[in-house]
């Protein structure tokens, strides 16, 4: 069974919609329900958090989580939509330690804040850097 559908059955309140990302099942999750959904996803056997991607769509941010299950050899994509003015989602560091740096990087480059992250500081750019380069309105010409 499609794990995205399965997740929707288990947590109907959290899943907004399901679909496919090329050939991977994808579920769009309500922002405030992310941690619950992630916990459920981990129970479903998705033990590998492959990547966290944040994208700026000018009017909103999307945070995409790619999961993989070593036991079932399944992929699952979770997508969360964050508000553009105040991009905040819950941190998954309590479930996957690998999320730590990936979230810091997403915060650093895209500017999404992760609530509950133990050490949300810049990782690739220098401390005190202004702005987040992967936001679409980032001014490339300004001297930092």
């Amino acid at each position: 069974m499609n794990p995205a559908e399965e997740l929707k059955q288990k947590l109907p309140a959290a899943v907004v919609s399901t679909g496919m990302q090329v050939n991977k099942p994808m579920a769009v999750i309500k922002t405030e329900e992310l941690l619950n959904a992630a916990r459920k996803v981990k129970e479903m056997g998705f033990d590998h958090l492959s990547v966290i991607t944040g994208t700026d769509y000018n009017d909103h941010f999307e945070v995409v989580y790619n999961f993989f299950s070593y036991n079932n050899k399944q992929n699952l994509v979770l997508k969360v939509i964050a508000d553009h003015d105040k991009p905040e989602v819950d941190s998954l560091t309590s479930l996957w330690k690998g999320a730590d740096w990936l979230e810091r990087e997403t915060y650093d480059l895209v500017g999404i804040r992760f609530n509950g992250h133990p050490n949300l500081v810049r990782i690739l750019l220098a401390e005190g850097w202004m702005g987040h380069p992967l936001q679409k309105d980032y001014d490339m010409m300004r001297r930092k």
Partner: peptide
């Protein structure tokens, strides 16, 4: 378990 949890590959 730790290796998986840390996302090592």
């Amino acid at each position: 378990e730790e290796a998986i949890n840390y996302g090592m590959t």
